[in-house]
Simulated scan of single mutants.
Amino acid sequence: MTYTQEIVSGAVKAFVWRRGIADQKGLWAAEIAMLVFLVGLLWSGERGWLVGVVGVVVLLVPCLIGAMWVAHHRNTVGKFRRMSSPRANFVFGEDGFEVVSELGEARLPWSTVTEIWERPGYWMLFTDPNQFMTLPVQTVSEEDRAFLRSRLSSAVRPKA
């Protein structure tokens, strides 16, 4: 299966958007509350250390999202760029699957996949909340996709 820059970059964007932004409603509610508090402090004429501390806390969340994006982009896109041929061979079996590329190989039982995000053109197979493998599916037959879905039936499939 062949990877493209669009696939790997799209996977990183999808991951950061969902894990860092969409799934963090409580964090964003706290961020808005802190921002309102900061504006209120500034509006009332406060210029002391409290404004500085609250300002740093307000900036922390966007900085964490940026750090998440940088880390995953360097890892995912970096691996793609290190490949002279952006291809990986996936072999699906009854007990698990094997991935082989010029960067290495891995053999995983189906039970290690905890979550699947089916995206247009690729799937993201998660083995940990923050660890995923990108599977280009543009050349995978519908029969093979059905086989994969049956083997990965216990994995979580979040709503789009």
Rank of each mutant, 00 (worst) to 15 (best):
M1V: 11
Y3D: 01
T4S: 15
S9K: 15
S9D: 15
A11R: 09
V12Y: 09
K13P: 06
A14I: 00
R18P: 05
R19W: 00
G20H: 02
K25G: 13
G26D: 00
G26W: 04
G26N: 06
W28E: 04
A30W: 10
A30T: 08
I32S: 03
A33R: 03
M34R: 02
V36S: 11
V36F: 12
F37K: 07
F37L: 15
L38Y: 02
S44H: 13
E46R: 15
R47L: 05
W49I: 14
W49T: 13
L50T: 10
V51F: 01
V51C: 09
G52F: 06
G52S: 04
V54S: 06
G55L: 12
G55H: 03
G55R: 06
G55Q: 08
V56P: 08
V58Y: 09
V58F: 10
L59Q: 02
L59H: 00
L60H: 14
C63T: 14
L64M: 13
L64V: 08
I65W: 08
G66I: 02
G66Y: 01
A67T: 01
A67H: 04
V70G: 03
V70H: 12
H73I: 03
N75S: 10
N75Q: 08
T76C: 13
V77Y: 15
R81D: 12
R82L: 03
S85F: 04
S85P: 05
S85Y: 00
F90N: 03
F90A: 05
G93C: 02
G96P: 07
F97R: 01
F97A: 02
V99S: 10
S101I: 00
E102F: 02
E102W: 00
G104M: 07
G104F: 07
E105G: 15
A106R: 11
A106K: 11
T112V: 14
V113W: 03
V113S: 04
V113R: 04
T114L: 12
W117L: 08
E118M: 11
E118C: 07
R119P: 00
Y122T: 05
W123L: 05
M124V: 07
M124D: 06
L125I: 11
L125F: 12
T127M: 03
T127S: 10
D128N: 14
P129Q: 06
Q131S: 12
Q131A: 12
M133T: 07
T134H: 00
L135H: 01
P136S: 06
Q138I: 07
Q138P: 02
S141T: 15
S141Y: 04
E143H: 13
D144E: 15
D144L: 11
D144I: 09
D144V: 12
R145P: 02
R145C: 07
A146Q: 14
A146V: 08
A146T: 14
F147V: 10
F147R: 10
L148D: 08
L148T: 09
R149L: 07
S150E: 11
S150T: 08
S154A: 15
A155D: 00
V156N: 10
R157G: 05
P158Y: 07
K159M: 12
A160M: 05
A160I: 05
